[in-house]
């Protein structure tokens, strides 16, 4: 589903990704782990299409199509979703309004009919309930005054409603207490599907106890330096990233 070949990326003249290769198959949950500054978040932004990153070389193929030339919204319409580490606030725009706007924008891009209001409400209610998001929260401005945990749940709610084919979770566990973490992980797990792939970016093993990955990749100095099964995460938890830092240096 996702194939990245020899990706080289700079920001303000500083090289962040350095010939990164990565393949994630449909139905797979791939975890990316690595020390701070290894380029994990940059990878997620570059896949989603954030402007300020300069791609010098390589390609990102989604279902065989190179998406590097596409606008972020075009990538979204093709099923790329990024759950942000720090979700943005949009004052004055109620969460409901925002949800309706994004769902219909993607439907429009795929030439599908707009959702009717009752159908939209039905979907939101069902998805919100699973994530313990109450109606009052949906009426508030998007992410305005939300706690860290509420913001992360809102990201997963959007993911559930948009039904993307390729989901990136960028440090979704940061700032979450154990209860919130469980709710979020459960939300993700119910979305696991043979046709959908996940890229779970995390610094800690903790999240991977709840979202059990099929593959684990270790990232250092802007490239994947080691890949393995879920047991690799446990090994890292025990030994830390020290070895990889040295390797990077």
């Amino acid at each position: 589903m996702l194939q990245i070949n020899n990706l080289v990326v700079e920001i303000e003249g500083k090289r962040i990704l350095n010939g990164l290769d990565l393949t994630v198959k449909a139905g797979e949950v791939a975890a990316i782990m690595g020390p701070n500054g290894s380029g994990k978040s940059t990878l997620s932004y570059v896949i989603a299409g954030k402007e300020e990153y300069e791609v010098l070389d390589g390609e990102i193929l989604v279902d065989g199509e190179n998406i590097l030339e596409l606008e972020p919204n075009e990538r979204a319409a093709r099923g790329v979703f990024l759950a942000f580490q720090y979700p943005l606030e949009i004052p004055g725009v109620s969460t409901m309004t925002f949800l309706k706007a994004i769902m219909n924008a993607q439907r429009k891009a795929r030439e599908e009919a707009e959702l009717t209001t009752p159908e939209f409400m039905k979907r939101v209610r069902a998805a919100a309930e699973k994530l313990h998001i109450d109606q009052e929260m949906l009426r508030r401005g998007l992410n305005v005054g939300f706690s860290g945990g509420e913001k992360k749940r809102m990201e997963i709610l959007q993911m559930a409603l948009l039904e993307p084919r390729f989901c990136i979770l960028d440090e979704t566990d940061s700032g979450l207490d154990i209860d919130a973490l469980k709710i979020v992980a459960e939300g993700v797990n119910t979305l696991r599907d043979p046709a959908r792939a996940f890229l779970v970016i995390t610094h800690y093993q903790r999240l991977l106890n709840h979202i059990v990955p099929d593959t684990v990749h270790v990232m250092a100095n802007g490239r994947i330096v080691r890949s393995g099964g879920k047991e690799l995460a446990l090994e890292l938890e025990a030994s830390g990233y020290a070895d990889y830092r040295e390797q990077a240096a």
Partner: peptide, 16 residues
């Protein structure tokens, strides 16, 4: 720019 990117990532175009 971050607000814009967030909206675009969700599928809205720039004008929307």
């Amino acid at each position: 720019d971050d607000q814009m990117f967030y909206c675009l990532q969700r599928g809205l175009d720039e004008e929307e």
